[in-house]
Amino acid sequence: MKFNGRVHKFGNDVNTDYIISGRYKFKTLDMKELAKHVMEDLDPDFYNKVQSGDFIVAGTNFGCGSSREQAPWAVLYAGVSVVIAKSFARLFYRNAINCGLPLVECDTDRIEPGDELEVDLAQGVINNLTRGEVLPIKPLPGVMIKILQDGGLAEHFQKYGTFNFG
């Protein structure tokens, strides 16, 4: 799994209300519609700026707050390919993997807004093409790689009918 795109950078503690506000998420199951409001309270223009394949890059505790799975879905439907952060809140982490949105934990201090990256999950590296730097990433546990490879937890269940990590 290899992804290319540009960086949209955010700070620490980006909570799920910022990712998709409660005032939208209760209204609809239409994720394309929800995606138009992704990160709106932090950057009202984000949805228009983000190109398919781009990366959200953040500091610590990305996705803290609620259990709303609409958060990773909205990120995914906005076209973001991978979220890269120093650390993630556990609910967002779990939900993202279940939705099939890959996450990468690494030191993001050396990644700047607009940088062009190549993220190689199989090799476990980020190539910062703008800066000519290679950043190592923390590998995902096997269970999560299996769910991502199946395309998400729904697809995993379609395939096996239950959990199958054997």
Binding site: S66, S67, R68, E69, P72, L91, R94, N95, N98, C99, G152, L153, A154, F157, F163
Partner: peptide, 10 residues
């Protein structure tokens, strides 16, 4: 503990 919607379905 809290989980998301796909977890709830599973």
């Amino acid at each position: 503990t809290g989980v998301g919607s796909t977890d709830l379905a599973a």
